[in-house]
Design a protein around this nucleic acid. Structure first.
Lengths: 334, 334
DNA sequence: TTGTAGGCGTTATCAT
DNA sequence: ATGATAACGCCTACAA
């Protein structure tokens, strides 16, 4: 592969001039520009990005850490982040932390060892303290789905409390009063907020939150299955179950049929996230739309602006408003 | 960040020695090894992978091109490929071609401009000729879901013909004789093969393939919806519809209900791929399991072995045997 | 506007 | 086993 030297030689100019036309930030006379471009074409020259990185101390790599790579949750977000970065000539390096702290830290370490210029983080388990430490080390990053007040400009979230509120409110508005709730793991911030929103809606209707109708799940299908059985044993008197995410809702659907409910006639179900398959379940799943892709897009744009000085004037949205998407799994009580 | 120079100075050895302990391939005396390691610890030294790449002409990057990043098809595969590569200290760079030739070529160009040591390709539209040209340029790559005879050792596929055969056979074995077929885009190799397998099964049962019961879809949900309507207008006399992938099957389910069928009583449906949501549809979708993740794993292992001389003795499987997974959407005719 | 030269942090090839 | 030293391909003052 041709190097900058050969181009310089063929074009009868110096290295520096070739470098200038590559980067295009310093003026070069039209004549030499032509000469150099012709030489580059002739040799099929491609700049060596590694050498560029070494000399400029910029890798043009952005590390993206998601808590899970498999599963339906992240693929659209990754797709958008990758597009956004690639359009700006940056490379996305993707790593997965598997929803435990050690693995997430290892993922971050890995990305740093790749010499990423910046990181986009969707983490569940890592402490704020760790992230603040990262910030003190002058490592630029943006955060998806988690808010740290001190770094709020780089945090992109959905209002999970509001989402929990909207789901409960929709179920209440449909006439349900005996409502079971399957929450996410209590150490996860979004799970806490969704639950808080749920309780707020109940309070508005003067309904007490009934612990016998509550069970904590693990955000996974299996957890949803088990949780519904657990609740049913404690108290079988409910007409709706709200789940803190769609995967658990699918599990709950499964168990509901095992328990003899018919959906949605004798039991309504609501989820959260609006994953792709929410339209495929039967009945289709009423759920809160979680704009995870939009958050990814914003996180990427923040990096482009702050780290690479991309001067897009687009306004970034830090907190998205969720919306409830009603579907067949929510039955209107007459 | 500390450099190798500082480590060498602190440990009172030469650069070269430090480099040796980093790479660990040349013997170093235990005493100096300790000294160097102590110095590295003290300085919090981390090798600069960029500089390593420049000097060694190895980037340890593997480019992964998938035809679609969004959607449920690839996320599991990517997850496995990333794990496999990272375990070997390689970085996955992911790019998406959007199922058209230009975009796929652009994706490959992009990955090459990243100086990837090798590529893993899941392409739909790029010609064999282009891939062979890539090969002539000594760019190492492995291929998923497409077979080129001249490069068969690096191609990892599922036997699509067999899959088409198995699906049809299962439907036939369930007693169906009037079977509609929604095929994938005819320019896609896997679509052709699946159709061929379907026809072979019909032939075994001495059933003629009826073009009035056939429609070509686009592998997407919308295509499946439209295709079933089209077929129904041509000929409404069928008891089962086999779809060339799950997404179209979901669309077909939707249209089937619009047309007044009840599932699976009056219409059986079968898919292909066994995507995650096949277990969530109602009725659950009988389909052909497509071991896309396994193919990814093999493709990664091939790269590790051939490009990085990873001496794993594990035998690689080039062609996977599909299996039919029967579920509720397939009704047994009595 | 253009050229010169030093440096970026390694690896690799020689010697020793 | 260890040490000098020359690449690796480019960027970036500084000089012309």
């Amino acid at each position: 592969m041709a190097t900058i030297y050969e181009v310089a030689e063929l074009a009868k100019v110096s290295l520096a001039t070739v470098s200038r036309v590559i980067n295009g930030n310093v003026k070069v006379s039209p004549k030499t520009l032509d000469k150099v471009k012709a030489a580059m074409d002739e040799l099929g020259y491609r700049p060596n990005s590694i050498a560029q990185s070494l000399a400029s101390n910029r890798t043009n790599r952005v590390g993206v850490l998601v808590s899970e790579l498999s599963g339906p949750f992240f693929s659209n977000m990754l797709s958008i982040v990758e597009q956004e970065l690639r359009a700006a000539g940056k490379h996305a390096i993707i790593a997965a932390g598997h929803s435990d702290e050690k693995s997430e830290k290892a993922g971050i370490e890995f990305l740093l060892s790749c010499r990423c210029d910046a990181l986009i983080l969707h983490v569940d388990c890592v402490s704020d303290e760790y992230l603040l430490e990262l910030h003190r080390q002058d490592i630029p990053f943006s955060i998806i789905n988690h808010r740290i007040e001190a770094l709020s400009d780089r945090c992109f979230t959905v209002d999970n409390e509001m989402g929990g509120y909207l789901a409960a409110k929709a179920v209440l508005a449909a006439g349900h009063r005996k409502i079971a709730y399957i929450s996410g793991p209590s150490f996860k911030e979004d799970a806490q907020l969704r639950l808080a929103g749920h309780k707020r809606a109940l309070a508005e209707y003067n309904i007490e939150f009934n612990e016998a109708l509550h069970c904590t799940g693990n955000y996974q299908e299996e957890g949803g299955k088990e949780a519904l059985h657990t609740i049913y044993q404690q108290n079988s008197d409910f007409t709706a179950v709200v789940c803190a995410n769609d995967e658990m809702a699918v599990g709950a659907m499964f168990s509901a049929r095992e328990l003899g409910f018919s959906l949605p006639e004798t039991l309504s179900i609501a989820g959260f996230d609006d994953l792709i398959f929410a339209r495929y379940t039967y009945p289709t799943l009423a759920t809160v739309h979680n704009p995870i892709s939009d958050m990814g897009s914003m996180a990427a744009k923040w990096i482009l602006r702050e780290v690479y000085n991309n001067s897009s004037s687009e306004e970034l949205i830090n907190v998205f408003r969720p919306e409830f998407v009603t579907r067949r799994s929510l039955n209107l009580l007459s």
